[in-house]
Nucleic acid binder design. Structure first.
Length: 271
DNA sequence: AGTGCGGCCTGTCCGC
DNA sequence: TGCGGACAGGCCGCAC
């Protein structure tokens, strides 16, 4: 479920409830996420004081005075801040109890998410080490994408969804940004001009920023840290609009699979 | 080295 | 109403 805007919305929702708090305990009901939750995390976290809640790509980094929890929501994960003792339901895998009577609860039906522990700087962790620039940071420019795409034959949609190229552009927002830029998702990465990559960077930023402003996209079961829905769905231009008229030209929106993922585009507006 | 695919899981929806 | 199959917002790890 969560793409970058959903993860950022979650981060902003939980950070004020976590920062400065002492972890008083942890309850693990299901250890088998994408990787098993380590006993180290279980032992190290209680007693720690949370200092910051940051995001790198779609990973949430919950830093304490003794190490960092690296959390990924996968396809179906979500976090809620609740009163301690709120009854757990199916798929409520982890509770991190905090001083003051609240807890952070991780729910993840498909268990594609992850909760890892590191005592090294998190950016050196295997999962984070080779990640590309943040889409909303200064390092992502049209010139950078142009340079990175030389010799790449993959479709541009797969290219911008490759975390080593740029992070945080998931399946929904890749379709949206390419539509806004007028670029066909099938086009080979190496066959796009510098100028068009500059436009693409602008539309990637625009769509992600707007989605964050609207609290993310709720398709099925995404809800924020207080249980609220995201409102970006109503702004989607092509995603999920198969056979509906293009908002710009009226031609029916098409769907096809690119790199195993459903891809929505307008055959008239995107070249 | 770059590319494409299988796999991890559960839930939902659609057609029969 | 039940059942099988396809599909779902991510991403690692492997084979070619």
């Amino acid at each position: 479920m969560p793409e970058l805007p959903e993860v950022e919305t979650t981060r902003r929702g939980i950070a004020p409830h976590l920062c400065g708090r002492t972890v008083t305990g942890i309850v693990i009901r299901e250890r088998r996420l994408r990787w098993p939750i380590s006993p180290e995390l279980e032992h190290a976290l209680p007693g720690g004081v949370i200092t910051t809640v940051q995001r790198r790509a779609k990973y949430l980094l919950i830093a304490t005075d003794r190490g960092t929890a690296i959390l990924h929501l996968g396809m179906s994960g979500s976090l809620r801040v609740l009163q301690t003792g709120t009854p757990a339901r199916k798929h409520d895998h982890v509770d991190i109890a905090l001083a003051g009577g609240t807890c952070l609860r991780l729910t993840d039906p498909r268990r594609f998410g992850a909760l890892l522990w590191t005592e090294e700087p998190p950016e050196t962790h295997m999962l984070l080490r080779d990640l590309g620039p943040e889409p909303l940071g200064e390092a992502l420019t049209g010139d950078y994408l142009y340079a990175a795409s030389r010799g790449r034959r993959v479709p541009v949609k797969s290219f911008i969804m490759d975390g080593r190229v740029v992070v945080g552009v998931g399946n929904i927002y890749a379709s949206e940004a390419l539509f806004m830029a007028g670029i066909s998702p099938k086009r080979a990465s190496s066959r796009i001009s510098r100028d068009r990559y500059r436009v693409l960077v602008a539309t990637i930023r625009e769509v992600l920023e707007q989605a964050i402003k609207e609290g993310g996209t709720t398709l099925r079961d995404y809800f924020g840290s207080q249980g609220e829905a995201g409102y970006f769905r109503q702004f989607l231009r092509v995603y999920g609009r198969t056979a509906m008229p293009c908002l710009q030209c009226g031609i029916p929106i098409r769907v096809r699979r690119i790199g195993q993922r459903s891809t929505f585009y307008c055959p008239g507006c995107q070249r």
